[in-house]
């Protein structure tokens, strides 16, 4: 059973690759002005955990991090 998680995005790091939006359009969005990441929800629920972790790994600039509730922050290693 996956733990509840909280997503954070770093818009300064974001390169506007669109990868997160294309994989998880219910969680991520993209600004029409600068193409950078926006969050639709920071707490997508445990069901989305694995998919979110996949997107964290794929993000070309490591702009997405997830923090499991009551656990250490994980960044793409």
């Amino acid at each position: 059973m996956e733990m509840e998680m909280e997503i954070r995005v770093d818009r300064d790091r974001c390169a506007g690759s669109s990868l997160c939006v294309s994989y998880l359009p219910d969680v991520f969005d993209q600004s029409d002005d600068d193409g950078k990441v926006l969050l639709r929800t920071a707490e997508p629920g445990a069901d989305a955990a694995q998919a979110v972790r996949g997107v964290v790994t794929r993000c070309p600039t490591g702009a997405i991090t997830v923090r499991a509730r009551d656990a250490q922050e994980v960044r793409d290693a």
Binding site: A15, G16, S18, V21, S22, Q30, S31, D32, D33, D34, G35, K36
Partner: peptide, 14 residues
């Protein structure tokens, strides 16, 4: 420079 162009290549624009 990149920021001037990224809005042109978003998934929505594409």
């Amino acid at each position: 420079l990149r920021k001037m162009l990224t809005g042109e290549f978003t998934l929505r624009r594409v």
